[in-house]
Simulated assay, not measured.
Amino acid sequence: MSTPTRPTPRLPRRAASPAPAATTPGRTDDYLRFTAGFRRLTRIDLDQYKRAQMERRIRSFAERRGEPDLGRYLRRLQDDHVELEAFLDRITINVSQLWRNPEQWEVLRDRLIPELAGTGSVRAWSAGCSYGAEAYTLAALLRRQAERGRTFRAEVRGTDIDERMVERAREGRFTAADARDAPLAELRAHFDAEPGGGWRASPALRKLTTFVTGDLLRTSAPRGGFDLVLCRNTVIYFNEDVRDALHARLAAGIRPGGYLVIGATERVADAASLGLQPVQPFIYRKTEA
């Protein structure tokens, strides 16, 4: 650009429009300080989640609790266990139910489980199991397969980052709302009715399941250690790089011929590079190679 040859009249400076709250430097910094402090407090890394969604969720919740300043709200979480529990309920994704997405369970029941049972062993992993609805549904299908005369060894392992959900999963208790889409005959066969319309996984079902606390973003399964991995309705909340790295770790944990089942709104970005071949919508088979 050329330099003017004569002075240019100075116009009054216009006040800058305020930037949106979530992108103002100071606000951004206090969010990052909050996530770092929260990670030290709970070992949950909020920076792995999609930034815009998580920041909006946290700020709106803190403001509704009467504390718009994230620094002060973090100190409140450190000092108030009840408030921390309420916050965890808000930001962790614990939406689940028995037989959620019935069409996927039909494919598991009719195709995947009979095929895997024929090998003599079905080692399954419910990754991001929340309070156990998915793991117990899978265990019920495995028991039903065994009742058809197939002799095979079965085990279901559930992991979740939220210790409270893991403890709840071990109890195996579900509300009437949790069971609203479950086939009644299957409920009666594998669960015990409780007062108030609730259900509890039978002792036989609980014997098939193990639940442990684990962070999917930091831990890996034994290489080829599972025949079947379910990780549904979880990665949609993660950044793309985090999602792809997680899918790679899940795929590595599946033995050749085993299967990965993901959620109906999710995708594996480059399945072939992970040794995964799509066989049904949202279901992938680990190739022999």
Score class of each variant (00 low, 15 high):
residue 173 R to F: 13
residue 183 P to F: 07
residue 174 F to A: 10
residue 173 R to D: 06
residue 194 E to Q: 15
residue 163 E to G: 15
residue 194 E to N: 03
residue 192 D to Q: 12
residue 180 R to M: 10
residue 183 P to S: 06
residue 174 F to H: 06
residue 173 R to S: 11
residue 155 E to F: 02
residue 176 A to Y: 09
residue 195 P to N: 12
residue 165 M to H: 12
residue 172 G to T: 02
residue 174 F to L: 06
residue 180 R to G: 09
residue 160 D to Y: 14
residue 152 F to H: 07
residue 156 V to S: 01
residue 179 A to L: 05
residue 156 V to K: 05
residue 185 A to D: 14
residue 160 D to F: 10
residue 155 E to I: 01
residue 183 P to E: 08
residue 169 A to S: 15
residue 197 G to Y: 07
residue 174 F to I: 04
residue 196 G to Q: 12
residue 161 I to Q: 13
residue 186 E to I: 05
residue 153 R to H: 15
residue 156 V to G: 04
residue 166 V to K: 07
residue 185 A to N: 10
residue 187 L to K: 02
residue 182 A to F: 05
residue 180 R to F: 10
residue 162 D to A: 12
residue 165 M to C: 15
residue 169 A to D: 05
residue 156 V to L: 09
residue 161 I to S: 10
residue 157 R to I: 13
residue 164 R to D: 13
residue 190 H to W: 11
residue 170 R to E: 13
residue 199 W to F: 08
residue 161 I to G: 10
residue 153 R to G: 04
residue 183 P to Y: 07
residue 186 E to V: 04
residue 198 G to S: 08
residue 164 R to F: 08
residue 183 P to N: 09
residue 182 A to S: 05
residue 159 T to C: 14
residue 178 D to M: 04
residue 193 A to D: 05
residue 177 A to C: 08
residue 162 D to T: 04
residue 197 G to Q: 07
residue 158 G to Q: 09
residue 185 A to Q: 10
residue 190 H to F: 12
residue 159 T to G: 02
residue 181 D to G: 06
residue 176 A to F: 07
residue 152 F to M: 03
residue 160 D to W: 14
residue 170 R to Y: 04
residue 188 R to A: 14
residue 175 T to F: 06
residue 189 A to P: 00
residue 192 D to Y: 00
residue 157 R to D: 04
residue 169 A to K: 00
residue 170 R to I: 03
residue 170 R to M: 09
residue 165 M to Y: 05
residue 187 L to N: 03
residue 194 E to K: 14
residue 152 F to Q: 02
residue 152 F to I: 05
residue 189 A to E: 03
residue 161 I to E: 06
residue 181 D to V: 07
residue 193 A to R: 15
residue 179 A to E: 01
residue 166 V to F: 09
residue 191 F to C: 01
residue 164 R to N: 14
residue 199 W to K: 02
residue 198 G to V: 02
residue 170 R to K: 14
residue 185 A to F: 00
residue 175 T to D: 12
residue 199 W to N: 00
residue 188 R to C: 01
residue 187 L to F: 03
residue 198 G to W: 03
residue 165 M to D: 07
residue 173 R to M: 11
residue 152 F to G: 02
residue 169 A to G: 10
residue 161 I to P: 09
residue 175 T to I: 07
residue 161 I to V: 15
residue 162 D to N: 15
residue 187 L to P: 06
residue 179 A to M: 05
residue 163 E to D: 14
residue 193 A to C: 07
residue 181 D to C: 02
residue 188 R to D: 08
residue 195 P to H: 06
residue 153 R to W: 03
residue 178 D to L: 06
residue 191 F to D: 00
residue 169 A to P: 05
residue 184 L to N: 01
residue 157 R to T: 14
residue 156 V to E: 03
residue 175 T to E: 11
residue 177 A to V: 13
residue 191 F to E: 00
residue 153 R to T: 10
residue 196 G to E: 11
residue 196 G to A: 09
residue 158 G to T: 09
residue 153 R to Q: 11
residue 195 P to G: 06
residue 182 A to V: 08
residue 173 R to K: 12
residue 178 D to K: 06
residue 185 A to W: 04
residue 172 G to D: 01
residue 164 R to T: 13
residue 178 D to H: 15
residue 168 R to S: 14
